[in-house]
Simulated scan of single mutants.
Amino acid sequence: MFDLPSKRQIKMVRALVQLKNYRKRHGLFLVEGLRATEEALNSDHSVEFLLVSDDFLKRHREKIEKYENMRIYEVPREVYETLSDTEAPQGIMAVVRMKNFELRNIYEDNFLIVALDGIKDPGNIGTIIRTADAAGAGGILAGKGCVDIYNPKVVRATMGSIFHLPVIEGVDLPAVLHELSQKGAKIVVTHLGAEKSYFDVDLTGSVVLVFGSEAEGVSPEILEMPVELVKIPMPGRAESLNVAVASGIVLFEAVRQRSHPFPL
């Protein structure tokens, strides 16, 4: 039997689910589900405490008790459901402290970075983070117009990948892309009006892949920079692709090229 959380902790969990400003002010965010919680616990992020439902504890006590040095609180299932952001909650969540990453954390030789411009759908951003993690990208740059990276829906869609690679949000993308370009990076932007296909561009060196929102695309300020515009050929009748799908296609072309050198 674990202790009950205090009223302050219950209020904290509710605020972390609902309020971006609260998350930013306190430097905390919420992860929910067994897999995501274990990813948090096995990462170098600081986990403040776990909150579990009584029925989850009955089913998974051995998984919880191995974290004996962690603060763990137990609540009745009906209370847990009022706190959860999911439709069918597993019964476990963790309050995690954010990490502050800087550009130098993701800058290395032949880096592969994903930059996001104005993407507001939580599921898309979460999926892109997960895909970038799978592709071995060095980090994510989320521009000022993007949805909050620590929104519970984003965190859930990353499936734990938010703990695997640096994510820097609130970035002044034009300024940072200019800086990276000065360091020799190729800035590659997906654009429906591009003449060149994504598989005709050398993605083996230091590359930043830039993806904009489906509605507006990449901002004009970025398009005015010295960037390489590429398109994904679509012989079918669809006019465009979901941005998360598009990012996966281009990211894994970079993986292919880095595994098999680009022909001269």
Rank of each mutant, 00 (worst) to 15 (best):
R77K: 14
V75H: 00
R71M: 15
Y73E: 02
K63P: 05
Y67H: 14
R77C: 10
T86V: 09
R71C: 13
N69Y: 10
E87Y: 09
V75A: 00
H60L: 10
D85P: 07
E62P: 07
E68Y: 14
L51N: 02
E65T: 15
D55C: 07
R59Q: 12
R61Y: 12
Y80K: 00
A88R: 13
D55L: 08
E65V: 15
R59M: 09
P76C: 08
K58P: 03
E74K: 00
R71D: 15
R77M: 13
M70F: 06
E74Y: 00
R77T: 15
Y73Q: 03
L51K: 02
S84W: 05
R59L: 11
D54M: 07
I64Q: 05
E78Y: 13
S84T: 11
L57S: 06
N69V: 11
T82E: 14
V75N: 01
I64F: 05
K58I: 09
T82G: 07
K58E: 14
I72K: 03
A88Y: 14
H60Q: 12
R59N: 11
S53D: 05
F56K: 01
S53Q: 04
Y80G: 01
E62G: 08
E68P: 02
D55P: 04
P89F: 00
I64P: 05
E65L: 15
N69W: 08
E68R: 14
K63V: 08
V79A: 11
Y80A: 01
K58F: 08
P76L: 08
R59A: 12
A88C: 11
Y67C: 07
R61H: 13
L51Y: 01
V79K: 10
V75Q: 01
L83A: 03
T82R: 13
T82M: 09
E62R: 13
N69G: 15
S53Y: 02
E65Y: 12
L83D: 02
K58W: 06
L51D: 02
D85Q: 05
N69E: 12
V75T: 01
E74V: 00
S84R: 03
E65M: 14
P89K: 01
I64T: 04
L51P: 02
D55S: 15
E87Q: 13
K63C: 05
V75I: 06
L51F: 03
R71V: 14
E65P: 10
E78W: 12
D55N: 10
E81M: 06
E78F: 13
E87G: 11
N69C: 09
I72P: 04
K63E: 11
Y80M: 02
V75P: 00
K58D: 09
L51R: 02
R59K: 14
R61E: 14
